[in-house]
Design a protein around this nucleic acid. Structure first.
Lengths: 333, 333
DNA sequence: CTTGTTACCGATACCGGTATCGATAACACC
DNA sequence: GGTGTTATCGATACCGGTATCGGTAACAAG
């Protein structure tokens, strides 16, 4: 059991052949006799040889890396997408590499630059709102760029997701159709979570079309969480007791809101609407309304695009894959 | 704006210097005149040059990679740990690379082998229960190995986590001290989630010491989730209506259980106990008992160990960093 | 015996950087 | 003028693989 990582050269020496022959044997290339191949495999086993991908990738000018850049891991949304990407890559020999931006554009640029320095065979980034210099960097990287989650903007290359503006609009229409009239809004950190801001803007557009507006709103400045949603809902309900519907920036916040409603003994009256369609929300004893965003599917398709395989059964063709979220849990009030 | 990735050679040519001088200029090495450095930087900007880490790492025999191998992303536990690792690595120039095992030992071995082929400067793996061949591979890799989450076993090198056996024991003691007598258990996929199995075993040890045992239990075979916890709890409560306490494999399941209790109008009576101390559970309108596992902290310390910096204020010294989970939410019954 | 074919293998160049050592020029000093 | 010192730069080797081409031995065919 060698303590230092052994090289192909050493394996070859142990097998009594040249480096080149050892390389061929390990890759299952032709032009190697069965006996020689056997000896090389034994030497490999003996030395615990593990190939060096750095050398392989440098030499072959190819990597099996897919760079994935997401804002955060602090709620279940992005992990779900990442799991989807991993699943979409499964069996391709490709490996996803994740980088976090903390919803910070500068950090995003640095992370992307760092990722590109590994010469990945594809890069997946979240959203369409990268600043110009970041876009320029991605464009000149000569790598397939897959922008996920959002559709509202101009994609660089591939684009998988849904229109958050429309998602907000549709939710507003559904709630108005269900007879809701007195709306509140609760969200957080909208200057960073641009997709949540787009949903809110879409929602408000439809409210205005119907000569309505948010009666009251509360905006937190930390990232969304169940606890924050609960806290802000208590606040908002104290200030505006006669709301009959609250739109939240996402399901985490809405679930918190539902708990707050429960604690305030006002469960049935006020309809809480979120976004994402988390499993958690489905298991809740309280009904919240939500738009089901196909997080895992978005990840899987991104993964399949990254591996370059033709993805079957896509909801639309071409380089833009659009989903329309299904709205559930809206009931008359 | 070059479409193909440019090389240092090209940058050097554009600046009218040799490759070597360009390399020095970009790394801020000495022996470069201010004027030359300026010309190189301009050429870099012009060509949109992004260094090639493959070449750099191969040449320097060093990578900035930290390999991280976790079982899953489907609940918030591991994302939380990953976020901690990222935070612990912040500012070090190191980059975490994640691989998923789906709680499958064979897949774990393959993922670890694949990770090692990138010659990471450290590798973080989940748990201490790797099969012998995997351990051998890690041992001979000549890389710091950091095993996280669990302490019950023999570590290869560094070890950060807590004893899940003891966590189960302590929870049982606390519940018994609070007057609970009729215990049930609900979990899932224990043959894969070995840490949950250890907690259960610890819990049962203390039950037996007190001449008690689980009156009834339900084991799912899919991964834990809020929905599954709710479903199994309904089942168990029908079969064993006189339970006064249920121990769950984790908080996800326990939260589902709490919801089930709510739906069955038996909220106050039965104490549900989980594990992890998720934020979600804290925001719940219902009290569940839990052991707070410092997930993010475990990740951060693993990250700090990986970057090789001395981590200040560690709860213990040496290569084993042990945490003791805090139990909350246990009330008399 | 010569020639051609096939199977197997090795020598060499290269991927894109960095380490190392040596070269050159400018300048100071004796 | 000869010599030493310093600042700046380039040529070369190397990291650990793979692509490519050429070489050798064995054997069959003429």
């Amino acid at each position: 059991m060698g303590l230092r990582k052994s090289t192909l050269e050493e394996v070859a020496a142990a097998a009594g052949v040249s480096k080149m022959t050892a390389s061929r044997a390990l890759r299952g290339a032709p032009d190697v006799s069965a006996e020689t191949r056997q000896r090389v495999l034994e030497a490999t086993e003996l030395l615990g040889y593990v190939g060096n991908r750095l050398a392989l990738s440098l030499s072959s000018q190819k990597t099996n890396l897919v760079a994935v850049v997401v804002p955060s891991m602090s709620n279940i949304v992005f992990p779900e997408v990442l799991a989807g990407i991993s699943a979409g890559l499964e069996g391709s020999g490709m490996q996803a590499v994740f980088g976090l931006t903390d919803y910070d554009a500068r950090k995003e640029r640095d992370v992307i630059r760092d990722m590109l320095s590994w010469r990945p065979s594809a890069i997946v980034v979240t959203g369409l709102d990268q600043p110009e210099d970041t876009v320029k960097m991605l464009r000149s990287a000569d790598v397939p760029v897959i922008q996920i989650m959002d559709l509202d903007g101009t994609p660089i290359d591939f684009n998988v997701g849904l229109s958050h503006g429309k998602a907000g609009e549709e939710m507003a229409r559904a709630l108005i159709a269900a007879g809701r009239k007195r709306f509140g809004y609760i969200g957080s950190a909208l200057e960073r979570d641009l997709r949540a801001a787009k949903r809110k803007a879409g929602f408000e557009r439809v409210l205005h079309e119907n000569h309505l507006s948010f009666i009251g709103q509360r905006l937190g400045d930390t990232l969304s969480s169940v606890g924050l949603g609960k806290y802000l809902t208590h606040q908002l309900l104290r200030a505006e007791p006669n709301l009959d519907c609250i739109y939240y920036s996402n399901d985490d916040m809405a679930v918190g809101g539902a708990f707050a409603g429960l604690e305030a003994s006002r469960s049935g009256e006020i309809l809480m609407a979120g976004f994402n369609g988390l499993d958690l929300a489905a298991a809740l004893p309280l009904r919240i309304a939500t738009s089901k965003s196909p997080l895992r599917m978005i990840g899987e398709i991104a993964g399949r695009l990254a591996r370059g395989s033709t993805a079957p059964n896509l909801p639309s063709t071409g380089k833009i894959i659009a989903f329309v979220p299904e709205i559930t849990g809206v009931h008359q009030g």
